[in-house]
Amino acid sequence: MLELRLVQGSLLKKVLESVKDLVNDANFDCSATGFSLQAMDSSHVALVALLLRSEGFEHYRCDRNLSMGMNLNNMAKMLKCAGNDDIVTIKADDGGDTVTFMFESPTQDKIADFEMKLMDIDSEHLGIPEAEFQAIVRMPSAEFARICKDLSSIGDTVVISVTKEGVKFSTRGDIGTANIVCRQNTTVDKPEDATVIEMQEPVSLTFALRYMNSFTKATPLSNQVTISLSSELPVVVEYKVAEMGYIRFYLAPKLEE
């Protein structure tokens, strides 16, 4: 028996909006530690890893480890029917072939049950070792989303370079070039407006903007985004999910000729 009750149901709504365009079908894994997902996009260029820790749920019952295959578009359609202030409960029977999403209005005067068929998805699970990064940039998520959006109107790849000057986002296309430099800025009123750059050594990598723009759909989840770079590894773009977890996007670099 699985029963996960999330008072801040809007978090789950936002999580689905963040991943439904990148990944079609995925297995949600439920264990004592939490509710997680790891899936690659269809071209195997990007990977998303989600973790919602059990402590973040008001009620978390997971009798046995369970893996539930779901079509993320259909799941998003059902979660769209939940109000932003609704309590969302995910329920499933062990060995069952459906999952139920229950939405309760804050005043408990409206209760909705949406039942969805589960799918058999044989997904490849990748081992992602903890890594040391050459540079880690923490910045306002809206700022990062704006940069990716603006640059994608000029070119289709972005070179992200971190030097002691700051972090530079560059692109070039048929109409010209664009360079945006963000400097460290910790003298801000609100901590979420800060840009913090930890650089072990300078690094510069090239990525497809199409994927970066897809990742920024997670912007509503968190005021901040963390971008971790290392020249031998995919970039990791991470958005925290309230105090209960995170959504991490991994993107393999491009080799410029």
Binding site: V45, E124, H125, G127, Y250, L251, A252, P253, K254, L255
Partner: peptide
Amino acid sequence: RGVQLNITEFYRST
């Protein structure tokens, strides 16, 4: 332009 690498070139399936 340029060669897009795959994520599976960096992380092995478990």
